[in-house]
């Protein structure tokens, strides 16, 4: 079935450098530096990336970082908890706006 998202595009990511190689090079250098071990381990960074991938709902990122998390030694229980963290923050972000709603409504209401 024809879809907008194609899994093989993930492996062609570097082709984005074809028209703007300097910018792509800067991006990929930065990207690789970000995921190298620093104060956070590579495993922790992959879990964060997995969570963000769910937040931005990028299927390429979910595919890539599910694999990365497994390869960095995370297990499915930890990865599932990371997705619940996303859900809590996204849900909380909606809910906390309810205070704005209540404030506007209270101002307008008798």
């Amino acid at each position: 079935m024809e879809t907008y998202y194609k899994p093989e595009h993930l492996t062609k990511f570097e082709e984005i450098g074809k028209e703007a190689s300097g910018l792509a090079e800067k991006f990929f250098d930065y990207y690789n530096a970000v995921f190298a071990e620093g104060e956070l381990t590579e495993r922790e960074k992959s879990l964060i990336a997995l969570a963000v991938a769910h937040t931005v709902q990028c299927p390429y990122c979910i595919d890539a970082f599910t694999q990365a998390c497994l390869e960095k030694g995370s297990n499915l229980a930890e990865m599932t908890e990371a997705v619940h963290v996303v859900t809590a923050i996204r849900g909380g972000a909606s809910l906390v706006h309810g205070i704005q709603m209540r404030s506007v409504a209270e101002k307008l209401s008798m």
Binding site: E42, R43, E71, K72, G73
Partner: peptide, 17 residues
């Protein structure tokens, strides 16, 4: 050994954990 079709993580990091 990895519990699936993926490569193992860094030995040093895994050993520490």
């Amino acid at each position: 050994n990895p519990t699936g079709a993926f490569l193992p993580s860094s030995q040093a990091q895994t050993e520490t954990r």
